[in-house]
Computed example of a mutant assay.
Amino acid sequence: MKKLLAESFGTFWLVFGGCGSALFAAGYPELGIGFAGVALAFGLTVLTMAYAVGHISGGHFNPAVTVGLWAGGRFQGKDIPSYIVAQCVGALAAAGCLYTILLGKTGFTMDNTKASVFATNGYGAFSPDGYNMASVFIAEFLLTMFFLIIILGATDRLANGKFAGIAIGLGLTLIHLISIPISNTSVNPARSLSQAIFAGGIPMQQVWVFWVAPIFGAIIGGWMYTYILQKKN
């Protein structure tokens, strides 16, 4: 149970910190943090929670990471469903808190006919810069694949484990720097689902891409590291 609570808390912090920075601070007049600030915020959420609760649950905070670690032989398949449920619960709780805070803003409305509404992910007209479904799928697949390679490499028994959280957090920051204009960056199905549920409409209809592409990418990344890249001795 403590492992599941740690996953929920960690995923809550990822969504609240990452999506919250996009909603509250990214476009603030004159002082907004912009894409770079949002990218750094997502990286910092993972970095901080990796050290805070990673020793309890492994610090996945992402269904794709959980599946990828299983593909790489680092996680038991029987625990995948409970981890994913815990991650989604944490993400939804964070989205609910973000929405509640936004309700207190004068003039707040949820316009789910626009790209990136409530920090959602999307393709086509719902991509921040108009990228089609194929482009978004490829980006999410490749970026999640490399994210798993970073995670597995940084936590390898031959690596310096004390710095794993830093490498993983900075890896996620780089991923966001690359892909915010493409898809508003997912690489995390729980993060995508939580925002899409509150936004509804087209973002909810498109959320399947942000489950399928990251999970496939994570599986390939897990296999590649374990069976091609990993040093055995």
Rank of each mutant, 00 (worst) to 15 (best):
V38H: 00
F108P: 03
P29E: 13
P203C: 04
A39R: 06
G10Y: 01
G90C: 08
G222Q: 09
G20F: 02
V38Q: 08
G171T: 00
V89L: 12
I175S: 08
G58W: 13
N62L: 03
S8R: 07
T173S: 15
A41F: 08
W13G: 01
L103K: 03
A94T: 05
G90W: 06
F108E: 04
L103E: 10
M204V: 00
Y83A: 07
T106S: 15
Q205M: 01
I166R: 02
I84M: 03
L143N: 06
A119D: 14
I151F: 04
P214F: 04
I180N: 00
Q76N: 15
N160Y: 09
S194E: 13
L102I: 03
G17L: 07
L229H: 06
G161R: 14
Y99C: 06
G200R: 00
A6W: 04
L98I: 09
I151V: 13
Q195C: 14
W208G: 07
I180R: 01
V85N: 14
A22Q: 15
L5D: 02
K231W: 14
I197W: 07
W70A: 15
G122C: 07
P81F: 11
G130C: 00
D156Y: 08
G72C: 11
G201A: 14
V117Q: 09
A213M: 08
V89W: 10
A6D: 04
G217M: 11
G217C: 07
G217S: 09
A196C: 13
G161Y: 13
T113E: 13
G54M: 10
F210E: 12
I56K: 09
I84P: 05
Q206G: 01
F163C: 13
N184A: 05
R157G: 12
F75G: 04
P181G: 06
F24N: 12
I138H: 08
W70G: 12
G130L: 11
A36V: 02
M49Q: 14
T106K: 12
G161W: 05
L174C: 06
N132D: 15
F42I: 09
S183E: 13
G124W: 15
R157N: 12
I149S: 02
I80Y: 14
M145P: 00
P181R: 14
Q205C: 04
F118K: 09
N62A: 09
I202K: 15
I149F: 12
C97W: 02
G10W: 06
A159P: 10
L4T: 05
G18L: 05
G124V: 05
